[in-house]
Design a protein around this nucleic acid. Sequence first.
DNA 1: CGTAGGTTTGACCGTTTGGTCAAATTGTCA
DNA 2: TGACAATTTGACCAAACGGTCAAACCTACG
Lengths: 210, 210
Amino acid sequence: MNETAKLELTQPPKTRIQRKNHALILEAALEVFSTHGFRGATVDQIAAQAGLSKPNLLYYFATKETIHVALLSRLMENWLAPLEALNADGAPIEELLGYMHRKLEMSRDYPRESRLFANEILQGAPRILPSLETDLRNLVDAKCLLIQRWMDAGQLAPSDPYHLIFSIWSLTQHYADFGVQVGAVLGTGAVDFEQAHQHLTLHFTRMLTP
Amino acid sequence: MNETAKLELTQPPKTRIQRKNHALILEAALEVFSTHGFRGATVDQIAAQAGLSKPNLLYYFATKETIHVALLSRLMENWLAPLEALNADGAPIEELLGYMHRKLEMSRDYPRESRLFANEILQGAPRILPSLETDLRNLVDAKCLLIQRWMDAGQLAPSDPYHLIFSIWSLTQHYADFGVQVGAVLGTGAVDFEQAHQHLTLHFTRMLTP
DNA sequence: CGTAGGTTTGACCGTTTGGTCAAATTGTCA
DNA sequence: TGACAATTTGACCAAACGGTCAAACCTACG
């Protein structure tokens, strides 16, 4: 019966058609949620974007919120990955510049994911606050310890590691979340990520070099 | 008749009651729009927050969009002011640190305005893109010329003035727009703006000192 | 006072919204 | 092929939505 739909939420889809439509729906939902926010998006919109009828879409995801949660939880993994890759055995400045670079690449290649995340945080993170307070916090704590060691060893100019990470987040995500504004001010209509990368490299090199 | 309501949109309200309810509605709308976005906010919500009945609210603002536009246009003025205050006769580094400081104060004192703006940009700036392409762009152009002169004169370390301004925007607004995330990671639940100010001062001092 | 204009409200309307359901269609596999 | 499960759909529903309107209510001011 409709237990099928519920099973898919906890377990990966099984049939060929399920896999296809599952992906189709998440792709469409990402497009709609990222530009209109949760409450601003409609199920009809998502269904139309996915090329499915509304009842058909609701056959795969029982509610609008289910889709949103699925998107967010999938996002959190990809979101933490670049920071996890910060390597204790690497050269400190290069490691942090690399992290900045990976985050900027994500802004360039996955701006919708960035805006989806921004929307969620702007609204007070009603659905992912617990994950921020545990998963994200633990990861940041660990990496800040590492950064602090680098600073203590004189390999990085001293500063608050937490705020240093915040600055990497904000500077890189700005080019995705506020891309429209950047484009409007530069008169180009879109972000030049090569330019942004050069500036951020200069920026953090000055900031981090002891 | 209801020409009154239309007049109020172009001219400031006249009677005592009009002034009071006008302010009441904008305050309530700021609260609701800034957390739910335009489409996510409902007129009933705004009316309830303002302590007015829905028809009464619509007596002062003909449509939901009218309220939103009123909020945004009022915001744009306050938004440009700190950058306008950048003084060509001041000491370059102190001037830019001062601008950063004013922007950070706005994040601390007017986080809802910051989130309202962020929501609008995230959704592609459908209502204020023209203003960004003219007012904001002209202002930024002018100030970037000034900054470039400072750099050419060796009073500031050279970098791209436009991206330098973007970095001030993103680093300061981050503490308002992503305040929930910052609080969750630090475990404090809220942003310590004194800490943030110290870090950003250090950050930009290193970035700007020739 | 009184009355004219400003203000407030309950009842209402058409549309959109998230979601349901039985029936029809399609896919799978023995 | 047949038969059972998986998929798709049109019709539908209750609630929420933005907005309207006439009538009732205030309030300033001569």
